[in-house]
Simulated assay, not measured.
Amino acid sequence: MSNFNFSLARSLKLLGVLVFGIAVIVIFIRLFSGLLFLAPVKLAFMSVVLLIGLSLFSASVIFPRLLSRGTGIVYPIATITVSIMYLALSNLISVWFIVGSTVWYIGWELLALAAVIGVLSVLLFFSKRESDNEYQVELEQSNKTSIHMQLMYIEASLTAEQHVEGILPIIHSFKALKERIHASTPFGRITGNSAVLELENTIRSNLDYLQLYMRPNTLVKNRVDIQRLIDETRALIVNREVLNVR
């Protein structure tokens, strides 16, 4: 049902843009057809400007997210608004210079196009930064959830075997590790530091191995390796924070 609604919305946008474009072209021909013999060069430039404006408007309506790369509604609306303003301004300039200098006409049209490109560049910059920030937040949340689930599984496995001789020191060490992880900077937040990234990958790998050692038939006989991994992982967490401070 959602795919049908999306397809219908896309079809309606295409139809609306097509009807609008045809209407603008018909009006343009009706108003300026007389220039075909009086000023054919100017008419050609005016037609190109009109088509550029219509193309920009059509693309911004049909593919607003593609142009702005924004994840919200602000940037697509801004892109559509800018395209409408350019469409109106470029054709207003055409009317102003209908009997004026062709050189001045081309100059003003290029200035208008440059201004629009500049505004769109600013929109692209901020929308890309917003998109990157959202991706970073999602990555951080995903890492946080994944590590939290691993810690829960390991803790539950250790608790289930707490009656076994020699497990209590491991449980205490693991609780200290868990507290240290929760108190540290969330995984995925630190960017641009390859050393920190490598440590985070090693820590996640250690937690994976700890999960494997937590199987009922391997937990007891792997007590030494489990303790070593817990101590090593805690040291890696400390090193990660030190590198982050630097």
Rank of each mutant, 00 (worst) to 15 (best):
M1Y: 06
S2H: 05
N3H: 11
F4Y: 09
L8W: 08
V19I: 14
I22P: 00
A23G: 07
I25T: 08
I29V: 12
R30Q: 10
F32S: 03
F32M: 01
G34F: 11
L38S: 15
P40E: 07
V41S: 10
V41F: 09
K42M: 12
V49K: 03
V49F: 07
L50C: 06
L50N: 09
I52S: 02
G53M: 03
L54R: 02
L56V: 04
A59V: 04
A59Y: 06
P64A: 08
R65F: 10
R65V: 11
L66P: 01
L67F: 01
R69A: 12
G72E: 06
I73Q: 15
I73Y: 11
P76Y: 00
T81S: 09
V82R: 02
S83K: 02
I84M: 10
M85Y: 02
M85R: 00
L89G: 02
L89E: 12
V95A: 06
I98H: 03
V99W: 13
V99R: 14
S101D: 11
L113G: 07
I117E: 08
L120P: 06
S121N: 14
F126Q: 08
F126H: 07
S127A: 15
K128C: 09
R129W: 01
E134G: 02
Q136S: 14
E138F: 05
Q141K: 13
S142A: 14
K144F: 09
K144G: 03
K144H: 12
S146F: 14
I147H: 04
Q150M: 12
I154N: 05
E155H: 13
S157T: 10
A160D: 15
V164Q: 13
E165I: 10
I167L: 11
L168D: 15
S173E: 13
F174E: 08
K175Q: 14
A176V: 15
L177I: 06
E179F: 02
R180A: 11
I181N: 09
H182A: 14
H182G: 02
T185H: 04
G188S: 04
R189Y: 06
I190F: 03
S194A: 14
S194W: 00
V196L: 03
E198D: 15
N201Q: 14
T202V: 08
L207D: 07
Y209K: 10
L210S: 06
Q211P: 01
R215I: 06
L219S: 08
V220K: 13
N222T: 13
N222V: 05
V224G: 07
I226V: 15
Q227I: 04
L229K: 13
E232M: 09
E232N: 11
E232T: 14
R234W: 03
A235E: 15
L236G: 10
I237D: 06
V238G: 08
V238Q: 15
V242L: 07
